[in-house]
Write a protein that binds this DNA or RNA. Structure first.
Lengths: 133, 133
DNA sequence: AACAATAATAAGAATTATTACTGATTTTAG
DNA sequence: CTAAAATCAGTAATAATTCTTATTATTGTT
């Protein structure tokens, strides 16, 4: 994982915004967070830096919800629950190790997997209780 | 799962196209398959019917690859391998049952999950051998 | 088979997320 | 401090998807 070559106040603020939350934000959300601090930031800068952070591995895309990519700055992979009602993306504990599955994919198919994603879909507690209406 | 209200030749052809393949096609791919049979079909019809089939559960969206939604007509959920090189979406066997995870989500968080998605990412055998270049 | 009610369709416009371009500004190495 | 190189804002462009409207097809009923 090569690090980002240079830094800038805005670039750092974008990464900071992603790191400061566990809501797995979209590009728009990140933009809305950084905008009050650097009012002249442009959405293109957010997208450009997200692409860059994805390349270096500092940020990963965890899901696409309603056509919007959602990001996370966590290093280790984990499992998510996506509420189809309020569109929250929530971290949950990963049930069992998948190491055997990686070797099986290689053994059975010749596929070399380097990461995976496990996501559950449904309704979160709040939406079931009608809190998000 | 309420059924579709009416039928049409084009609607049936769209569903047939999805059922006839295991490549987990995009809307564009489906369009390209039905177009030779019904040359006056429009892409909007494909999208409209995909949304409808998703509602009724006859088709599910299995992934978003490069901004394109990918579909499948299989009833039972399964696990996928996505080749990040050639963008193939390939069925693979599901490692272990996730029933316990569903009850744990409810018990620990109050989340009611109704389905899940497990996807591995990497390079397929063909791309490793340089066949897809 | 014809009828009317209703749903489905084509074509194209509109929308939305994302990417590309360009000239100005900021950052970093020396 | 200076200059090269990277980054940026603003805007234009792209691409996937959705929406609109007038037209056509399907279905249940005679």
């Amino acid at each position: 994982m090569k690090p980002v070559q240079k830094h800038s106040k805005k670039r750092d603020a974008i990464l900071q915004a992603i790191r400061s939350t566990d809501c797995h934000p979209s590009a728009e959300w990140i933009y809305s967070q950084v905008k009050p601090i650097y009012p002249d930031i442009s959405l293109g800068t957010v997208y450009r830096n997200l692409a860059l952070f994805e390349e270096t591995g500092e940020v990963i895309a965890v899901a696409t919800v309603d056509g919007q990519k959602r990001y996370d700055a966590t290093a280790d992979p984990h499992t998510h629950f996506i509420c189809e009602c309020c569109k929250s993306v929530i971290d949950v504990e990963t049930p069992q190790p998948f190491a055997e599955m990686y070797t099986a994919l290689s053994r059975e198919h010749g596929f070399r997997a380097d990461h995976h994603s496990l996501t559950f879909y449904g309704r979160c507690d709040k939406c079931q209780n009608g809190e998000n209406i």
